[in-house]
């Protein structure tokens, strides 16, 4: 067992984890972040996405011990007035919503890199996330809306 500290949405969580513990399970079971979800267990659907610093990580493939001291953001850590969160809600970019936290975090990462992403940049950045309800048209609109809110022309 290893003692590590994860800073989750600004709050330090000191916890004991085994060598093989996944970041996904530690965030869900010990930090209470159930917006982080297992959809495939192999890093192929994006439902378990978190931001470490400003970088997206598939937490279902990440060993928790490697993130000692890391600053981790999950979707429930974002304010309702956050540009991306409010854009997704206003654009109807959630049906069942199960996968949407992953899209929200990927969008934050995209906008940090490209404040005014092109259509192809949106596609490239989000194509690793699966929305089985097929909310992709609304997600596209939400990303553009968030970009506009974040850095108005």
């Amino acid at each position: 067992m290893n003692e590590i500290t994860l800073i989750v949405n600004g709050t330090p969580h000191r916890t004991r984890v085994s060598d093989s513990a996944l970041l996904l399970d530690v965030l869900r079971e010990q930090a209470g972040c159930t917006s982080v979800r297992e959809g495939c267990g192999v890093g192929a659907c994006g439902a378990c996405t978190v931001l470490v610093g400003e970088t997206s990580v598939s937490s279902c493939l990440a060993l928790a011990t490697r993130y000692d001291g890391a600053n981790i953001t999950t979707a429930e850590g974002l304010d309702e007035n956050d540009d991306v969160v409010s854009a997704f809600a206003d654009c109807g970019a959630a049906q069942c919503g199960y996968c949407i936290p992953g899209f929200v975090l990927m969008t934050r990462e995209l906008l940090a890199e490209h404040p005014r992403p092109t259509s192809e940049q949106i596609t490239e950045h989000l194509e690793g996330n699966i929305c089985r309800c097929g909310t992709y048209p609304e997600i596209r609109t939400a990303v553009s809306t968030a970009a506009e809110r974040r850095s108005p022309r």
């Binding site: 159930t34 917006s35 109807g92 919503g97 949407i100």
Partner: peptide
């Protein structure tokens, strides 16, 4: 009208069975 609990869905705070 917007879907019930749209913000909760977007922020992932809707509690599902596994949660």
């Amino acid at each position: 009208r917007a879907r019930y609990d749209a913000l909760g869905r977007v922020r992932g705070v809707v509690g599902h069975v596994g949660d």
